[in-house]
Design a protein around this nucleic acid. Structure first.
Lengths: 202, 202
DNA sequence: AAAATTAGCTTACAGTTGTAAGCTAAAAGT
DNA sequence: ACTTTTAGCTTACAACTGTAAGCTAATTTT
């Protein structure tokens, strides 16, 4: 095996080790370099051959998580074409992602409000992609005026992410409730944004 | 000074020390018992005379933060009576709280999605109070049907909290934008929930 | 007045952490 | 074939952590 190949392999081992050690009770910030190295099967100091410090590893993890989010978007679009119900299909797809990749979602969720400004920015950027694509869609497909599409998308993503967070701590039965609740909330938003001309009283 | 009084005093010193050490770069989980004890002016081991461990201290902090939230609600109600504009006044009051007590708000924000299930539950409970009071208000004052008041309140609180989180990282000028954005989003929700009979298309 | 309780102290220990220094062996470059 | 580069190793150290054990002095109880 070439040196470059081998290096890439251990790099992956480190990343996978980090993801593997994330859990409901353990966030990235309580991950230690030594632990990660141990799980990856290398000496602690060898870690530095791949990342300058834990922060650099963390940003890599966030990047990978963002990649998975974008894959999720494509998957949702496919399903919508077959199914038709935009809001319901989107939320259900998202919920499957959250439950099936809970470690990945939790990473985004925690670092979004974590202690590192760099991490927060990185997560915000990934979520921003999400919003931008949704806003595009809203502009094309709905009665929502252009300037409001972005704000509507942001509100929707906020509510859906929050629902995902709730789902992580909930039983499978309550997850159904959370999904239903979120569907209604998103419909209100869509309805409200479409009929924006008539303002509700303050 | 009586023994009980003195004890209460050091207990407060510990709590205040903990709050003081929270910062944009330092969450509760990266607070050490020794650091807190040092700042409180006591020996590390004396900490145990007041709290069984750091978790117990953390839950106390969350409780205090929740108390401040409820005070905030009362303040908002007073202002609404004078001012009239419910949504705008509420959001502006909330934003003032976030900026003025950023350490307290950050605590809630972080522990809401933190690694300790007990902390998450504690924060969820405090936010639940918020939602319940708002739902009550919505039932009385708006056209929203009873069963939807709770869901609407939850959506509103989610959006407002999220706006608060954004505000923490934003410049004063962008805070104005965030506030305006949130006002519009909440109006949509109110509008959508009031006209719930006509469903928007999926 | 004597006894019991206790808030806070000092000392001590074992565990973990990040990372510096320097070696080895193998791959890549010449 | 010789030199350079480098991924990974071992060893080492200083800093910090939580907390156990036991003392002191002052308040409270009896």
């Amino acid at each position: 095996m070439s040196r470059a190949q081998q290096k890439e392999k251990t790099r992956r081992a480190i990343i996978d080790a980090a993801f593997a050690q994330l859990s409901p009770d353990k966030g990235f910030s309580s991950l230690s370099l030594r632990e990660v190295a141990r799980e990856a099967g290398i000496a602690p100091t060898s870690f530095y051959r791949h990342f300058a410090d834990m922060d650099e590893l963390g940003l890599t993890l966030v990047d990978e998580a963002g990649l998975m989010l974008r894959q999720l978007l494509r998957q949702a679009r496919n399903r919508i074409e077959k199914n038709g119900s935009v809001i319901r299909t989107s939320i259900e797809t998202f919920m499957e992602f959250v439950v099936g990749n809970s470690n990945v979602f939790r990473l985004l969720l925690r670092e979004r409000s974590g202690t590192s400004a760099a991490f927060r920015r990185a997560v915000a950027r990934e979520i921003q992609h999400f919003c931008a694509e949704l806003a595009d869609y809203l502009r094309k497909e709905t009665a929502c005026p252009d300037e409001y599409a972005q704000m509507q998308a942001e509100a929707m993503v906020t509510l859906v992410f929050h629902a995902g967070a709730d789902a992580l701590d909930a039983s499978p039965e309550s997850r159904v409730q959370i999904t239903l609740r979120t569907i209604v909330q998103l419909r209100w938003l869509a309805h409200g944004a479409a009929g924006y001309g008539r303002r509700p009283k303050d």
